[in-house]
Simulated assay, not measured.
Amino acid sequence: MLWILIGSGLLIFSPLSFNITLPEEFWVRQAVLFVVMVMIFYVNKEVLVPKYLFTTKTTIYLTIILSLCVLFMFFIEYFENLIHLKEAMHKAFHPDGGKPFKPKKDIFDVFTLLLLFLAAGISTSIATVQKWQADEVARKELDQQRIQTELNYLKAQINPHFFFNTLNNIYSLTSIDVERARTALHKLSRMMRYVLYETEKDQTLLSKEIGFVKDFISLMRLRISDKVQIDLQIDEEYEDRVIAPMILLPFVENCFKHGISSINQSYINIRIHVHEGQLVLETVNKIYPKNVNSPENNPHGIGLANTKRRLSLLYGNDYTLDINDSNPDQEYQVKLKIKI
């Protein structure tokens, strides 16, 4: 389509504005010129630009393409002389024969040379744009592969981190109440099914993610003492949407890891609700000193750090995370908003 437009505009419609009857030799020359322009276009686009220009051999490229255009210009001039075009054009413009024909001695046809340069320039531009587009697609594919690999790695770290803590809880419970330990194992098995099947997907239903969090909190209730007060507020009615699996657990888990004291009264406040298209998680717990040398007791440990990275990779600017651990009340406060 593009070549039809160029050929028609430059080589057919423009000559028709001469208001004279053009000889057949002229149209033959136009057809040859069109073929030459197409040849330069594709030779330049498919061979010269990739082989020389894209490999930083600019001087060689310019030498070849300029020489090629000049060479084809001479070919067009030779072809015009071969078919006696100039003499035929003289007769078309002077049908009365009043002015004798004098052949030009110029060897350069500037107009023809400019047309050939135009074909070469357009082909160079198109080849450059196409290469840029291909490179951009390849870069995005590599970025996507890198992000997916990193997400898989982060999830692989989060899951063992969670099970390590949960199994420790059940181990402690077996020496206190076997029946409660069995109940804990049943809940853990249900949670394991969620981890095994849902984390293989990029997204899961919000109802499943909230159900998983509820199971976790219920499991933790079996272990903690009466000194810990848990205020849990989770919306029961909300529009079920999709969310990244296990994105809420590290924040909830963090409350139980670092907000419980074996001596003092403790409290954990957890609220999950949906507001104006955003999932909102708010947690508050008291900060109790732990063994800072233990990676499992580090409040900025592996699970939370990886979750922050996952949030950044998955949601970009569609989430906000505010963590306040330096307030006068010695509380660890988290407010996470995710656009869903």
Rank of each mutant, 00 (worst) to 15 (best):
287 I>T: 05
319 Y>D: 04
16 L>A: 11
144 Q>H: 15
201 K>C: 07
316 G>E: 09
178 V>G: 03
119 A>T: 03
169 N>G: 12
203 Q>W: 14
188 L>S: 04
301 G>V: 08
261 S>C: 02
46 E>T: 06
297 N>W: 11
203 Q>N: 15
65 I>S: 10
173 L>W: 10
272 I>Q: 02
230 I>T: 02
162 F>C: 02
319 Y>E: 05
47 V>D: 11
151 L>W: 14
296 E>G: 08
47 V>E: 10
71 L>H: 11
190 R>Q: 08
178 V>C: 03
302 I>K: 11
120 A>E: 08
153 Y>A: 14
33 L>I: 09
129 V>H: 10
78 Y>Q: 11
106 D>I: 00
128 T>F: 05
324 N>D: 14
176 I>G: 07
319 Y>C: 07
47 V>R: 13
53 L>A: 11
199 T>Y: 04
201 K>H: 14
276 E>V: 01
176 I>A: 09
214 K>N: 12
126 I>D: 10
274 V>C: 13
230 I>W: 05
249 L>S: 04
226 D>M: 05
225 S>V: 03
165 N>I: 05
56 T>C: 09
140 K>W: 11
256 F>S: 04
237 E>K: 13
285 N>F: 01
24 E>P: 02
247 I>R: 07
166 T>D: 10
82 L>Y: 15
13 F>P: 03
102 K>T: 06
